[in-house]
């Protein structure tokens, strides 16, 4: 089930700076709230997001509990070669969601 979106320009000129946009469905439970029974709700956030461009890491972030639910992430990267940009989100359970998009560089 698609729970993440990733948008990369389909075409770019070599050397151009492109914007990568992404969105993922995640509840991002902070671990600081209490449930109806008065017990704390365990923390469940995306702790790391990593972007690779043809296998090489170009962006990485460690997220903290203050990041919103269903977080949006956008960053810029220089288009060097045709290939795939892949994003991987890892949450506290170790569950990894990945999404990739292709780009053609002329």
């Amino acid at each position: 089930m698609a729970s993440a979106r990733l948008k990369v320009p389909k075409k770019a000129k070599k050397g151009d700076i492109i914007t990568v946009k992404s969105l993922i469905k995640h509840k991002m439970e902070t671990g600081q709230r209490k449930g109806k029974d008065g017990k704390p709700i365990p923390r469940m956030i995306i702790k790391n997001v990593t972007a690779t461009y043809n296998g090489a890491e170009v962006f990485s972030a460690d997220w903290a509990p203050a990041v919103s639910a269903n977080p949006f992430l956008s960053f810029k990267v220089r288009a060097t070669e045709s290939g795939t940009i892949e994003l991987k989100w890892t949450d506290d359970n170790g569950k990894v969601v990945s999404q990739s998009a292709k780009i053609t560089v002329q």
């Binding site: 089930m1 698609a2 729970s3 993440a4 979106r5 948008k7 946009k21 992404s22 969105l23 993922i24 469905k25 269903n70 949006f72 956008s74």
Partner: peptide
């Protein structure tokens, strides 16, 4: 469309 989180539900609906 890329920043609107509602589209995550649109995607799920499409599936």
């Amino acid at each position: 469309e890329m920043s609107n989180p509602g589209y995550l539900w649109v995607d799920t609906g499409e599936d």
